[in-house]
């Protein structure tokens, strides 16, 4: 009997970890733009998962590559099959620390998020300048940054090199709500 109680207490310990300090969204929006004189390419993903842990001041984002929608279906197919190889690398992820997290209040607060971004199987350290807004029990995060395709070994064939920008502009809007397990 005693052991059973001990077990129960132990399990309580395990499952009682800070549920109110985690904030999650399952429909965050990430867009990217490639702009060249010949062609503008843009895509949007509105099924981005993102989580913030306010106790550890950590943040993580998970993006399904196949959920990026393009204007032209053929572009989307090429993006998945030839560039991002989403069969091999289905997800892009980010995991990092929110710097100056304590400053965040109701107003828009500039905060850098520093961590590791993984795209196309290649990981790279990055600092993402973000704007945090905490109203009631939501944490809203938005921002904009650039990524270089060659950093993630995404090769562009010579024939289309003039149509795809070397630096891709990325914007994001993530509206986190308290995470209930």
């Amino acid at each position: 009997m005693k052991t059973t109680y001990t077990f129960l207490i132990c399990f309580l310990f395990i499952y009682n970890t800070n549920s109110q300090e985690q904030y999650l969204t399952k429909n965050g929006v990430i867009k990217f733009f490639s702009s060249t004189p010949i062609e503008d390419i843009k895509a949007e993903n509105n099924q981005v998962l993102s989580i913030i842990d306010t106790s550890t001041k950590k943040m993580a984002i998970s993006i399904l590559i196949k959920s990026f929608l393009f204007e032209k279906a053929l572009m989307q197919e090429h993006f998945n099959e030839n560039y991002l190889e989403s069969d091999k690398f289905p997800k892009a992820t980010f995991k990092g620390d929110i710097l100056n997290f304590n400053k965040i209040g109701g107003l828009e607060t500039k905060c850098d998020v520093k961590g590791i971004i993984t795209i196309h199987g290649v990981s790279k350290e990055i600092v993402i300048p973000s704007i945090f807004t905490r109203i009631g029990n939501t944490i809203f995060v938005k921002g904009e940054f650039g990524l270089f395709l060659e950093d993630f070994s995404i090769k562009i064939p010579r024939l289309v090199v003039k149509k795809i920008a070397k630096e891709i502009k990325v914007t994001f809007e993530l509206n986190h709500k308290p995470y209930k397990k």
């Binding site: 985690q22 998962l49 993102s50 989580i51 943040m59 993580a60």
Partner: peptide, 10 residues
């Protein structure tokens, strides 16, 4: 955190 996101992925 990424494990939680994996778990929550529809």
């Amino acid at each position: 955190l990424l494990d939680i996101l994996d778990k929550e992925t529809p």
